[in-house]
Design a protein around this nucleic acid. Structure first.
Lengths: 339, 339
DNA sequence: CAAATTAGGTTAAACGTTTTATCAAATAAA
DNA sequence: TTTATTTGATAAAACGTTTAACCTAATTTG
C-alpha cells in the first residue's frame, strides 16, 4: 500500500496535523520540524491523496473546459488548439483539464457537465460562444470562470479575447495597401460577436481609406462558419459582383472554402483574386497557395486562460479581468498587388 | 449547499447505506425502496461527490493518458487525434481523461505523472513508444493499462495496434500496380516497431511482385520522424539514385517533407515521382497535390483503447488483449501510372 | 514579577461516501 | 412447531485529509 499521512507522521514522530500543515506551507511550523517532516516525505515518496484532499478542502486540482459540441467537431481546428494550450499550462501549474461539451442549443433541463455535478473542479474555462441558458444556470453556482473568445452580454466575467477589430483593420489595410478597392468580406454567423468585430474592423479600414462602402461586397448569413459555408458565400458574391479583386474571409476555414470555389471557377489566386483569412490554422501553410492571414495566438489564449483562472481561484485576480491577446498579419502567397 | 447522501436518506426516510446501495445498483434493495430513493435523488438533483467516492471506493472516474513529450509536440498531428478519440469515448462512458507527458528519455529518478502519485485514476492509456525505464517502474504499481500504437517487449500488456504490415503491403502494391519498379522506402526511426513493420510490408510486397530488392532504395536513420527528416532522407536518396519513380514514406509528416524536397528540386508529383504516405492526417487533403496515403483510424484507436481499458478495469476483459485496427488505402493525386 | 502574548504544536471533528457486519422479520425446511 | 434460511435493511467503521479549537511553554509587556 502507498504511504499515507499517518505513516509520515509516525516516522517523523509528529502528529498528522503537523504533516498536513507542512504540506500546506503553514507558517506555524518551525524550520526544524518542517525540515524533518519533509525529509520523511521524501524518503517515503509520499504524496497526498487527491480524493481525501478534495473531500475536505474543496480543492480538486481540476479545471473544467467547456465548449459547445459543434465547436468540438472533429475538424474544428481552432478550439482544439486553445484546449491544447490549456493542457500545456495546466500541466505546468499542476492541474488537470477536464473536458466537457454542451449542446449548442442547451436547454434548461439538460444535464450539466458531470464534473460540475460531482463538484470535481476548482474553476471553469468556457471556450467560444455558449447559450445564454447555460450561462444563466451556471451563474447560480457562483463558481470561478473564464470565458475565452466570448464575452457574454449578461453579467461581468473574466475574459480572454482576441483583438478582432484590430485584426479586421490589419487584414483590410493589407489588401488596400496592395492597391485593391473592390474588397469583399465573407463571413457567415454575423451575429457572432467575434465575427462582427472583424467586420467592424473591415468597415473602419475601408472608411479610413476613403473607399466608398458597398454593402453588396459584404456577404454574411447566420450559418456556422465552415468550409462549405465559405464556398456558398463565395458563390453568392460572384453571382452579384464580378469585379471583386480581393476577399477578406472571416476565418481560415471559410477562406479555404472560398479558395475552393475560386479554383473550381478558374479564378487564379492571387493573380485574379487576392484572399486573406483569419486565425492562422496549421493547414494555411500547406494549401496552395499558402494563405495570407491574421494570426491568432490560440495556444497562448489557452495558457492565458489557465493563468487567469488560477489567479481568480486563489483570489489573486479580480473575477472580471479582461485580457486582449494581440493579432498579427502573416503575409504569404494568397495576396498580391492588383494587376 | 449541494445536497448530500444524508439529505437524500432523510427525505426518503431510509439510511444512508440504503441510498448508497441504490446508487450502486445493489440487488439487496427491494424494488419499492429503490424507486422511492431514486425519486428523491431526482427531485433533489443529487449527485454523489467524486472525492468522497474516490476516497473510499478507489474509483475516481479518471483515466490517465500518457505519451512522451516529443510526441506531444505542438505540431504532432497523430497522437493528438488519438487523444481526442479517447476524450470522445471517455465522455460517452462517463469518465475523464487526464493527460500527462513524460520525458522521452525518462530516468528512474524522474517523477511519475501526478495522477499516479495522487492515486487519482482508475487506469492508464499509454500512446506511442515510451522508455523501458518508465514501463518498469509502472509495472510495480500493477495498474490497468492499455498501450496504443506500441507493444512493449517486456511483459504482457493490452494493446491497440495498427495493422502496419498490411498497410506497408497495401501502399507498396498500389505503387506496383501502377507500373512502378524503382520504389523507395523513406522512414527515419527504423528501430521503431511500427515503422519497422511498415518496412516489412514494403519488403514483402516487393518480393511477392518478384521485383529485385535493392537496399539502396531503403533510406532510414534513427531520427524522430519529422518533416525535416523526410526532406533530408529524400536528399540522401536522390544523391544515390536518380531513377526512382515512386516513394513510400513511412508517415505523412515525412511524406510532406519529401514532397517539399521534390518541389524544390523540380521533380513533378506525380508526373515524375509518385509519392504515398501513411496515417492520413488532415493536411493531406490540402497539400498540392492531395496525398495518396494509408489511412489509420486514429480517433477510433482512442475510442477502442478507452473501451478496452474500462473493460479491463471492470474485469470484463483479460489484461493482455490485443486489438488490431485495420488500415485502408486512400488514393488521391500524388500517385500515378508510370510514364 | 505577574500578566499577557506568542510560538509551535496537538486533538478531534469533519468532509461524503462505501462496505462489512449485524439484525429483525418473513419464509422455508425439518 | 421449532429451527434454519432468506430477504431487506441498518449501524458503524473506514477511507486520508484539513482545520478549528485548544494546549503548553517560552517570550514579551507593563
Amino acid at each position: 500500500m502507498r504511504p499515507t499521512i499517518k505513516d509520515v507522521a509516525k516516522m517523523a514522530d509528529v502528529s498528522i496535523a503537523t504533516v498536513s500543515l507542512v504540506l500546506n506551507n503553514n507558517q506555524r511550523i518551525s524550520k526544524e520540524t518542517r525540515k524533518k517532516v519533509n525529509k520523511v516525505i521524501e524518503t517515503l515518496n509520499y504524496h497526498p491523496s487527491r480524493s481525501a484532499r478534495g473531500l475536505v478542502s474543496r480543492k480538486t486540482g481540476n479545471l473544467g473546459f467547456i465548449l459547445t459540441d459543434n465547436h468540438f467537431l472533429r475538424t474544428e481546428p481552432f478550439y482544439t488548439r486553445v484546449f491544447l494550450g490549456t493542457e500545456f499550462e495546466a500541466r505546468e501549474r499542476n492541474h488537470y483539464i477536464l473536458l466537457s461539451t454542451i449542446a449548442a442549443n442547451f436547454k434548461k433541463s439538460d444535464p450539466l457537465p458531470r464534473f460540475i455535478l460531482e463538484r470535481n473542479f476548482d474553476g471553469i474555462i468556457i471556450a467560444g460562444r455558449v447559450p445564454d441558458t447555460f450561462i444563466n444556470i451556471l451563474s447560480n453556482y457562483n463558481v470561478p470562470v473564464v470565458f475565452v473568445d466570448y464575452n457574454p452580454s449578461l453579467g461581468e466575467y473574466a475574459n480572454v479575447l482576441i483583438d478582432n477589430i484590430r485584426g479586421g483593420v490589419l487584414a483590410t489595410e493589407h489588401l488596400i495597401s496592395r492597391g485593391h478597392k473592390n474588397i469583399a468580406f465573407i463571413g457567415g454567423e454575423s451575429n457572432h460577436p467575434s465575427i462582427n468585430e472583424r467586420l467592424q474592423g473591415y468597415k473602419t479600414a475601408i472608411q479610413n481609406a476613403k473607399i466608398k462602402n458597398n454593402d453588396n461586397l459584404i456577404i454574411t448569413n447566420n450559418e456556422f462558419l465552415s468550409r462549405q459555408n465559405g464556398y456558398d458565400c463565395a458563390e453568392i458574391l460572384f453571382k452579384k459582383r464580378r469585379k471583386v479583386t480581393a476577399i477578406f474571409a472571416a476565418n481560415d476555414t471559410t477562406a479555404i472554402g472560398v479558395l475552393q470555389y475560386l479554383k473550381d471557377n478558374k479564378y487564379k489566386v492571387p493573380e485574379d483574386v487576392s484572399l486573406i483569412g483569419f486565425d492562422d490554422v496549421e493547414a494555411d501553410l500547406l494549401i496552395d497557395p499558402p494563405l495570407t492571414t491574421v494570426r491568432v495566438p490560440k495556444i497562448e489564449m489557452g495558457t492565458e486562460a489557465v493563468q487567469l483562472l488560477i489567479n481568480i481561484i486563489n483570489k489573486k485576480s479580480i473575477a472580471a479581468k479582461k485580457i486582449i491577446v494581440p493579432v498579427k498579419l502573416i503575409v504569404r502567397d494568397s495576396t498580391s498587388y492588383i494587376n
